[in-house]
Every structure is written in C-alpha cells, then in structure tokens.
Computed example of a mutant assay.
Amino acid sequence: MNRRENNSQNLSYPLELPCGAILKNRIIKSAMSDSLADGEGDPTEAQIRLYERWAEGGAALSIIGEVQGDPRFPEKPGNLVLGKNSDLVKLSSLARRASIEKAHIWPQIGHGGALSYPLISQPKGPSALNLGGLQCAGMSVSDIKKLPDFYIKAAELAKEAGFTGVQVHAGHGFLLSQFLSPLFNRRSDQYGGSIEARCRIVVEIINKIRDVVGPSFPIGIKINSSDQLEGGLTQEDSLEALRILDKTSVDLIEFSGGTYFPGAASSSDSSSEGPYFVDFCQKAQLVTSVPLVATGGFKKRADALDALASGSVDIVGIARAMILNPSLANDWLTNRAGDPVFPRFESPPPGGITAWYTMLLTALGTDDEKSFSLDLTSAIQQYEERDEQRCEKWRRRFRV
C-alpha cells in the first residue's frame, strides 16, 4: 500500500520506513536534551531507565537528544558521546533496555557549533560571528571536510551498540542547522550562498553514514521548517532543502522550528494552541515521498489523530507531554486515559521552564516523579549546579 493511501487515521497503524524498518505505531518520543549522561559522555542508570520507561509506555521510537560525535563541541556536559572513549557496555545496556516491546531507539547525532557550551568548548560555526550574545570562530574548509568522520564513527558505534537507527541533528540552531541558515552561514565557497551549497555538508554526511551502516539501518534527520528569526532559514528555503534531501537515502524527516539564539524565544516555550508545524508538513508532502514527522504542540490525542487523518504527517512527535506522562503513547493508543495537564508558570525566569522539565526527566529516570516538587528557581539552581560539577569531569575526560 502506498503510505499516503491510508495515513493511518489510527495511531496504532504501523509505518514502514524506506529502508524496510517498521515503526509499530504513529507516536514517537522526540529528542530532548535529557542531560542525564555522567559528565564523561557515558549513560547513567537513570538515563537508561528513562528510555526504558518510554519503551514500556508504548512509544514506537524514542530519540536521545544531543548525542555528540565530537566531544570538543557539546551542547551541555550531560550529553552522551559516541566516540573512541565511549563505554560500549553501558551504551549496549541503554540500547537493549530502550528497545523492548519492539520499540526503536535512535541517538540524535549532533555538534553544537556556534552554540557549543562555552565552559567546555571553544565554539566554532560555519562563519565567525559576533551577534548579540553569540560569538564563535569560523570553520576552515579543512574543518568542514573532517566533519563527516565524526558522524560516521558515531553512527558505526551506535549500530555496534545495538541502537536501531540514528537521527542527524540539523535543527534548532546547532551546527548543521547553522550551515542551512543564511543568518549563521555567511560563507562564499562551496558550503555557502545558495541553499544547494548550504545543504552540501548535510548531504555528504547522510551519504557517508549510509555507506557504513548499510541499506537497512534507519537514518533520520531533524530540520527546521524555519528559524523563526529575521535573516534566518525561511520556509521556502526549507522546502528546497527537502527537495534535496528527497534524493538521499534518508528514512524519516522530522520538522520542528525555531533556533536557540541568545535572547530569542524557543518554539517549545510558545503559548500557541495546537500543533505548530502540521501546516508546513502539508506543503512538504508535495515535494518528498519520505515519511514526515511534525514535532511541537501535540498536547491532545485529538490533535494527533487530526494531523494523521489530514495526511499532513505520517507520524507525530511528542516531547514534553511524554515527560508529564511517560505512558502517554499507550494511553493514546487505547484511548483509556485523558490528555496530560500541563503546568502553568507565572512570569518564568529565562531557562526556568526548560530546567524544570529537565529535572522532572531526572525524577522519571529514578522512578521518583510522584515526589517531584521543585519550583522553577530551585530547578534552575539544581540544573546549573549539576552542569557545573559535570564540566570538571568533562574537562578531565576529554582534555578540553
């Protein structure tokens, strides 16, 4: 059956990816920076348990956010690292326990670029920048040509450890998103200028990963529908990028939006009602046959059903709602429970909401969410103290 002859209208309908892998239903746990690695790039028991819980809860696929191939450019010191120093035993335990019940588990392989954590990095992006609160050095052509090696090695290790696929992170303002965006990418060589040139390194990375993982191992990608910033990636550019990606062997394309630019509101903190990117995916369906995911704003089961029934998306991506209820997928699949109740925060401080949800993730990983009672200020304090402690461990392990 052509996948768009019946775009499920049913959350339990399986989805076959172009590589032949099967996602058992139409709900994925989208990537979030869980910040639960040990400060040396390896999984903790809490992180392993967290993804096991989402698998138990019915998610067809969980994606581990911000997994680094190059420890010199992390998003945070709580990120996983897939590299030569990685603990394969712990990674294998994570992959095994997170893939029970026929669930998929994919690391989201990324590079912080200009947004690398400055306390353990010297940020470097496609172009040297000094924009408000964002400063970084520019990459040389030699630097760019070395990038695929880190993604390749990370993908090879992921497959060896037993992960069931990988996602390439090209969204939310991190390195590959920076290459796609004219706001960050001001190069005039083969990696800058036209959207084709700005996509070049992304295509090279996908093609080289495919060469090493083989034809049946899923490769996904996450990109912005737009940067939601003046001078950044537009929807028109994103659709052109999609036409280019359609010629690669990518198996699943996830759309989100917004960029973590200093001073700019992230899309995940939006107060908008309903899913954010379904309308864009409707346009995207016209230019690709690759299955599409929209992530952002799915808070109600009815919204997920409507998005699938419209044919705009092939699968829905859920993030914070799955923190509030790690069994949300099973609940929505069986329609046996209501939608999650989202907390409301009055005048939240910058970063407060993200810190609160991240600390709640920690509670989920220790099966202690019922006693979680942090306010935003306390969540920020604990979150920042933990990162500070991990920075020293990161420096010792990776000598940065």
Rank of each mutant, 00 (worst) to 15 (best):
R301F: 08
F277Y: 15
D251E: 12
S347F: 14
K300G: 09
Q285G: 01
T164A: 06
E40F: 07
N85H: 14
L82P: 08
Q285S: 05
W54D: 05
R186M: 12
L361P: 00
G69K: 01
P326A: 09
E388L: 14
N79H: 08
T234N: 11
E346T: 07
S268E: 09
T366Y: 12
E240F: 13
T366A: 13
F217V: 00
P14K: 15
L15T: 02
V250P: 05
H169S: 02
L183T: 01
A59E: 12
N10G: 13
N330C: 04
C19K: 06
I109G: 00
L157S: 01
G274I: 03
D368K: 08
C391N: 10
L91T: 00
G110P: 03
L61R: 02
I353G: 02
T234G: 10
K76E: 14
S177K: 05
G132C: 06
P77L: 00
G173V: 13
C281Q: 09
S226G: 12
G138H: 01
P18F: 10
A114I: 03
F398A: 08
A264G: 02
L361I: 03
Y151L: 06
W106M: 10
P350I: 00
H111G: 05
Y260A: 15
P182N: 13
T362N: 10
L36K: 06
L333N: 03
Y117I: 08
G231S: 05
S373K: 12
S99G: 09
L50V: 10
W356C: 07
I22M: 11
F179A: 04
A337M: 12
T354C: 08
L360S: 08
G220Q: 05
A31H: 03
A154Q: 03
T288A: 02
N7T: 11
E56D: 11
L376Q: 04
R386N: 10
K153H: 11
E101G: 00
G352Y: 10
L82I: 09
V89A: 13
S312Y: 02
D339A: 15
G214F: 11
E385Y: 07
I221W: 01
K145S: 12
V278D: 01
N2T: 06
Q135V: 13
G165A: 14
D70H: 04
E101M: 04
E101F: 03
E273C: 06
A241G: 06
S327V: 01
R396D: 13
H104R: 15
E385P: 03
L183V: 02
S216I: 05
Y151I: 04
N85T: 10
R336F: 08
G296Y: 02
A197M: 12
K299G: 03
A304P: 13
S33I: 07
R301D: 09
N130M: 11
R395W: 03
H111K: 07
V168N: 02
V67D: 13
V400C: 15
K76F: 10
L91Q: 04
F298D: 01
R72A: 14
E56M: 09
E240Q: 15
Q228R: 15
N7F: 12
I219Q: 04
I109C: 00
D189P: 06
G58R: 04
